[in-house]
Design a protein around this nucleic acid. Sequence first.
DNA 1: ATGGTAGCACGGCTA
Length: 265
Amino acid sequence: MRLVTWNCNSLSARKELVGLYLDEEKPDVLCLQELKLETDKVPRELFESRGYHVAVHGQRSWNGVLIASKFPLRDIEVGLPLADLGEARLIAATLDAPGTGSAIGPLRVVNLYCPQGQSVESEKFAYKLGFYDGLIAWAERARAAYASLVVCGDLNVAPGDDDVWDTKQFVDTPSFHPLEHQRLARLLALGFHDAVRPHIKPRTFTFWDYRGGAFRFDQGLRIDHVLVSKSLVPHVSEAWVARPWRKKKGELTPSDHAPVGIRLG
DNA sequence: ATGGTAGCACGGCTA
């Protein structure tokens, strides 16, 4: 089965593009971030008409996360208590994916939109660090409760030098800051592994700013991730960044992020 | 030249 994470940058602006993506790529599970829509404004039929189950944690104007799955979703959990300040940045659900082998069993999928952090001096950066602290505590409990876990989404952190187009541009800057790297390391130390990096070339990016022709010059960051619990690592047979979806499709304008996917089993 | 662009929502914030 194939699982994809994609920061779509507004589901209302990207509705047709997401529909086209579902029709052409047919992922089994699609985790979206930055819906910028209240839960009851999310066009569920976009997914349900194509045979997906949907779990939504929406928010007006900003944030908002969603899981669409060909397999039924249960035990849906939304929000990161205390750490998300009420913003819609986390949704989790369990699914039974047939064809992934009995070794996997029920799969707990966690879809995240981590704060961006604005600038190191800003209170948004402190919020980002606090969000990560809360996430680490939360993930530790999830790790104990579920054997097979996928943590994916826009984590807003580029892990290493090969994950930013120019490290000199990101000195003392959110998305590539030592305090964020510390927290990512603590998250991984709970027993999560970057499922994508072993399958892609260094300097494969997932986000390019709309400004300054960043995509044309490949001035990007790898901040969209799929992490898996240790027992799942041998089942990750493939991973990719769907770079063509960062380009305009006819009249349809792209998100500033590309979809990132893994194949399990 | 602290720029540039996109989305939300209609001035300014967020990314």
